[in-house]
Simulated assay, not measured.
Amino acid sequence: MWYLDGFVYFVLDLGFTVLGLFAFFHALTQKVDAYTAIERMTKPAWLGITGGGTAAMLLFSPGGIGSIFWLAGLVAVLVYMVDVRPKLIEVQRGGPRW
């Protein structure tokens, strides 16, 4: 029998894990020079961060005993998605278009 909290944790886990996979593959497909241009860490560093964050979200679950590791993985992926990814897209398109 499913309880509401278990269902919510399952949906959160699934959704954020898919987001982590997207972040990892996005980081993988970007040019090495783009990371240098935005003055952030290197491409291998972001591959490690997004890959490690996604792995943590796959191995642990929210609301479980390892939920702190799940949360750390989520934060790592969200930092990439909110801070690094928009800058990578902007620099590869040629800067802001006003």
Score class of each variant (00 low, 15 high):
Phe60Met: 07
Asp83Phe: 15
His26Arg: 13
Gly15His: 09
Leu19Glu: 01
Lys87Leu: 14
Val32Trp: 14
Leu59Asp: 07
Val18Glu: 04
Ala37His: 05
Leu19His: 04
Arg40Thr: 09
Leu4Gln: 12
Leu88Phe: 07
Thr54His: 03
Gly73Pro: 12
Phe25Gly: 04
Arg40Trp: 03
Trp2Phe: 12
Asp33Thr: 14
Trp2Cys: 08
Trp2Ala: 10
Phe7Gly: 08
Arg97Asn: 14
Val77Glu: 01
Thr50Phe: 03
Val32Ser: 10
Gly6Arg: 15
Tyr3Pro: 00
Arg93Tyr: 11
Tyr80Ile: 03
Ala55Met: 13
Trp70Gly: 00
Ala55His: 14
Trp70Met: 01
Ala37Pro: 06
Thr42Leu: 13
Ala23His: 11
Thr42Ala: 10
Val32Ala: 06
Phe25Met: 13
Gly52Trp: 11
Ser67Phe: 13
Val8Gln: 07
Tyr9Val: 00
Ser61Glu: 03
Lys31Phe: 09
Asp83Arg: 11
Ala23Pro: 06
Gly52His: 02
Glu90Asn: 11
Ile65Phe: 12
Gly95Ile: 10
Gly73Thr: 08
Ala72Gln: 02
Gly51Ala: 02
Met41Glu: 08
Gln92Leu: 12
Arg40His: 06
Leu78Trp: 09
Leu78Cys: 10
Tyr3His: 06
Thr42Gln: 12
Thr54Val: 00
Ile49Phe: 12
Trp46Leu: 10
Phe60Gly: 01
Val18Ile: 15
Val11Phe: 08
Gly48Thr: 02
Phe24Cys: 08
Leu28His: 11
Arg40Tyr: 05
Val82Phe: 15
Leu21Cys: 09
Leu58Val: 10
Pro44Asp: 01
Gln92Val: 12
Gly6Tyr: 07
Arg85Glu: 06
Gly52Lys: 06
Phe16His: 11
Tyr9Leu: 00
Ile49Tyr: 08
Arg93Gln: 15
Leu14Pro: 00
Gly51Asp: 02
Gly73Ser: 13
Ser61Tyr: 11
Trp2Leu: 09
Pro44Thr: 03
Ser67Met: 15
Lys87Tyr: 09
Met57Ile: 03
Val75Cys: 04
Tyr80Arg: 03
Val75Gln: 03
Gly95Pro: 14
Leu74Pro: 00
Thr54Cys: 04
Val91Pro: 11
Val79Trp: 06
Thr36Ser: 14
Phe69Cys: 09
Gly66Pro: 01
Leu78Asp: 06
Gly64Met: 01
Leu47Thr: 07
Phe25Ala: 10
Trp46Arg: 01
Leu21His: 03
Glu90Ala: 06
Thr54Gly: 01
Thr50Met: 03
Ala27Ser: 13
Trp2Tyr: 13
Trp46Ala: 01
Gly95Asn: 12
Ala56Met: 09
Ile68Cys: 08
Gly48Val: 08
